[in-house]
Amino acid sequence: MEVVDPQQLGMFTEGELMSVGMDTFIHRIDSTEVIYQPRRKRAKLIGKYLMGDLLGEGSYGKVKEVLDSETLCRRAVKILKKKKLRRIPNGEANVKKEIQLLRRLRHKNVIQLVDVLYNEEKQKMYMVMEYCVCGMQEMLDSVPEKRFPVCQAHGYFCQLIDGLEYLHSQGIVHKDIKPGNLLLTTGGTLKISDLGVAEALHPFAADDTCRTSQGSPAFQPPEIANGLDTFSGFKVDIWSAGVTLYNITTGLYPFEGDNIYKLFENIGKGSYAIPGDCGPPLSDLLKGMLEYEPAKRFSIRQIRQHSWFRKKHPPAEAPVPIPPSPDTKDRWRSMTVVPYLEDLHGADEDEDLFDIEDDIIYTQDFTVPGQVPEEEASHNGQRRGLPKAVCMNGTEAAQLSTKSRAEGRAPNPARKACSASSKIRRLSACKQQ
């Protein structure tokens, strides 16, 4: 084909351009004929944790799935940006308080904090938690009735009371019990989460009196709706648990309003109706937990002794299953770290194939690490110290990083047969305790 000078094309009309061969290198194709290559998922490591896909996002930050490269346990990490926390009232204080509380709590029905990582340079905090497959609110939203069968609701409620009793025994008032803060594992274990607005009572406090509340409006008791200066913290949790039980068994809320002012007005009056299909035992329990006067409201001991709580409820309806993943529609909620794991395991070791967030990740503290002497050669063979940054567990980050890069360049065919977990650990520049 004859090559045409581009400067001469402006002298031709459209018809003349076609005659000189423009149609031979300008093609129009339908979008259905285009085959897009999927974007390669680059592996990203935060300390010893391999990052997966997004699980959810809230006002405080994002939650992603991660894999512990040492234990191969599935975890969830809450990623918090200090810049964003400053824009939220009491944001930083709530996060630090939640970390302090979770560090000393150990119960099967309370979410466990596994690790805390802090990135000084990017001003990011990573709260590594045990993995929960789904939230209770997500399960309720997945069915038209917006409720659980009585047998399933009873099982979840009993676990909620177990976890709540443990928190109260530790002198902690949750203040925000609701389905949105109750998570579930694949085995059906309920976990109380989000202790950001919780309050730890003084060890020598005479009672459970509280003065502040930041919980969700629909789950607040009349004493808070009416603006009382002080109130019983434990009875606030009992009320919120009662509203939660009402919601998961009926699909409704005892109090509603077009806006928060109308909602608080209705809560302050204390008038509500219980659907007739709840039955006398459940209705009596709800009335005891939603008692207007805090002094007359049920205690956890009274809830445990109630006939509806103690009764064994046979399954009359099919239980609400864990819904498919909202993004991938995966009904099994498979591990989202698998594509990243395959990338590390299947590809040659190259620095361009993975990302390490930083050479140094500070753990379990908000301060910069200490310094240790770096050896410097002298005339008599002895070495003197220069400062060298280290990880919180004493690992020399720069030395590990250099060693990792040197190993990656060394030709050794046997290394390709290593397991995925050992490869992740070798790529991680800074081991965590």
Score class of each variant (00 low, 15 high):
S193F: 00
K191A: 07
R310I: 14
I224S: 10
Y292A: 07
P324I: 14
N412Q: 11
L290P: 01
Q170E: 01
L427T: 14
N259L: 09
P144T: 08
R147E: 00
E376H: 05
E291I: 08
L182N: 06
D176E: 01
G381I: 14
K108S: 04
E357A: 07
T13F: 09
D277H: 10
P280M: 06
M18G: 10
Q302P: 00
I35N: 06
F309R: 01
E14V: 06
D365M: 14
L140W: 00
C132K: 09
G227Y: 12
K108I: 11
K191N: 01
G257A: 09
D358W: 12
S428F: 15
R405C: 10
P89T: 04
S401L: 13
L341R: 08
I322C: 08
I248G: 01
R87L: 08
K262Y: 09
D343E: 12
I79F: 01
C391A: 13
V133R: 02
K311S: 05
D284P: 00
S378Y: 10
G251S: 06
A43P: 11
A318P: 14
I29N: 12
Y362L: 08
T32H: 15
K124D: 05
L164R: 00
K287P: 01
T209M: 12
C418H: 08
F148R: 00
D350F: 01
E98S: 12
N226V: 04
G91F: 05
D162H: 03
S422R: 12
E256S: 10
G227P: 07
Y272E: 09
S283Y: 03
W308S: 00
Q137L: 09
R310V: 12
L286P: 00
P411A: 06
I322L: 05
D207L: 04
I248V: 04
E407L: 04
R104D: 03
Q112S: 07
V368L: 10
L160W: 01
G135R: 11
A153D: 00
F366R: 13
Q159S: 03
H313R: 00
V243T: 09
E121K: 03
L105I: 14
G408R: 14
I267W: 04
Y118T: 15
S419E: 09
Q100V: 11
N94R: 11
R28C: 04
L341C: 11
K269R: 08
R384L: 12
L195V: 02
P281V: 08
Q220M: 07
Y49Q: 01
L85P: 11
V173W: 02
N380I: 06
E357R: 11
P89H: 10
V63M: 04
R409E: 14
A410M: 02
M392C: 10
T244G: 00
M18C: 05
L184F: 03
G15E: 15
K41R: 14
K96I: 06
H27M: 15
K78V: 00
E351Q: 09
P179R: 00
D258H: 15
N393M: 12
D365V: 07
Q7S: 06
D229R: 06
F148S: 00
E65F: 08
Q399L: 10
A200G: 02
V66L: 07
E291R: 13
D284H: 07
T189P: 07
K329M: 13
G288M: 09
T32Y: 03
D358Q: 12
R301C: 08
K124H: 10
P221M: 02
R87K: 03
K416L: 05
S299G: 08
G251W: 00
L282R: 01
F354K: 14
V128C: 07
V66I: 02
P38L: 04
P38W: 04
E293A: 06
A410D: 08
T212M: 05
G242N: 00
R39V: 08
D208M: 15
E396Y: 09
T250F: 07
I46D: 01
E256L: 13
T212V: 02
H202N: 01
Q382T: 09
F204Y: 03
M335A: 13
E92T: 15
I46T: 09
R304G: 09
E357Q: 07
N393D: 06
R409M: 08
L400V: 11
L290V: 03
G394S: 12
D229A: 05
A198P: 05
N226P: 03
F231S: 02
R106H: 15
A316G: 09
R405L: 14
R74V: 03
T32K: 04
S271L: 11
E120L: 11
E92C: 15
Q382A: 11
R103H: 14
Q305K: 02
V197C: 13
A205C: 09
P89D: 01
G180F: 04
P144N: 13
P373E: 13
A347L: 12
V368Y: 13
L263T: 08
R331E: 07
T336I: 10
K178F: 02
R87V: 07
M139Q: 07
T395V: 06
S31D: 09
K178L: 03
P373G: 13
E16C: 11
D176P: 00
N393Y: 13
E145L: 08
G288S: 05
K287I: 09
Q371P: 10
P319H: 08
V337R: 03
L50C: 11
E317P: 15
S69L: 09
R310P: 05
E293V: 06
L160G: 00
L263V: 04
N412K: 04
T212L: 06
P281G: 04
A397W: 04
G188P: 11
A406K: 09
P413D: 14
P321R: 09
E223D: 05
M139P: 01
H174V: 03
L72V: 08
F354Q: 15
T328H: 13
I238S: 03
F309G: 00
V20H: 12
G381L: 09
P324M: 04
G370Q: 14
T363C: 10
D352V: 07
V150K: 10
E121M: 04
L282I: 04
K83N: 10
T71W: 07
H154L: 01
Q214H: 11
V114L: 01
K235I: 06
R103S: 06
Y292M: 15
L67P: 01
E57F: 04
G242F: 00
A76M: 00
H168C: 01
E14F: 07
R383V: 09
N109D: 02
T244D: 00
F231E: 09
I322R: 07
I356H: 13
V243D: 00
L102I: 09
I300G: 02
M129V: 01
L341A: 13
H154I: 02
A295H: 11
P221C: 04
R425H: 14
V114T: 11
E199Y: 06
G394H: 15
L45K: 13
V133P: 13
T244V: 07
L17R: 08
T367Y: 13
G257E: 10
T328A: 15
I303V: 12
D194E: 00
A414W: 15
G135T: 15
D229H: 02
N259V: 02
N380L: 05
D207W: 01
T186N: 01
L184I: 05
E396A: 09
I322V: 06
M125K: 06
P387Q: 11
S232G: 05
R383A: 12
F231D: 14
A200W: 04
Q137K: 04
E349T: 13
K82S: 08
E349D: 10
E145C: 11
C391G: 09
W308A: 01
D343G: 11
M127N: 15
M335Q: 06
T336K: 13
G233V: 02
V66A: 11
K124V: 06
D358V: 12
F148M: 10
E407G: 03
M22G: 06
R147D: 00
F148P: 00
R426C: 07
V133W: 02
I267H: 12
I360W: 04
A397Y: 11
I360G: 12
A429W: 08
A429R: 12
A225G: 06
K83C: 11
L427F: 10
S428Y: 11
M51Y: 15
E223H: 08
R426S: 13
P387Y: 05
H306P: 01
G215R: 02
D327R: 15
A347T: 10
T71I: 07
K97T: 10
F255G: 02
T189C: 07
K175A: 05
P149N: 11
C418M: 13
Q100D: 14
I192N: 09
L290M: 05
S428I: 15
L183P: 01
L17Y: 14
K235Y: 08
R310F: 10
C418S: 13
P339A: 06
R147Q: 02
N247E: 10
P413G: 14
G385Q: 14
I424L: 10
S169V: 02
I35W: 15
P387E: 14
L105V: 04
H306A: 11
I260L: 09
E223W: 01
K178T: 05
G408I: 13
I303N: 13
I79W: 00
G268F: 08
I46W: 01
K96G: 10
P203S: 15
L263Q: 01
K178I: 02
L344T: 14
T230G: 02
G346M: 14
K82G: 09
G370S: 13
Y272W: 06
S404L: 12
H313C: 09
L55F: 00
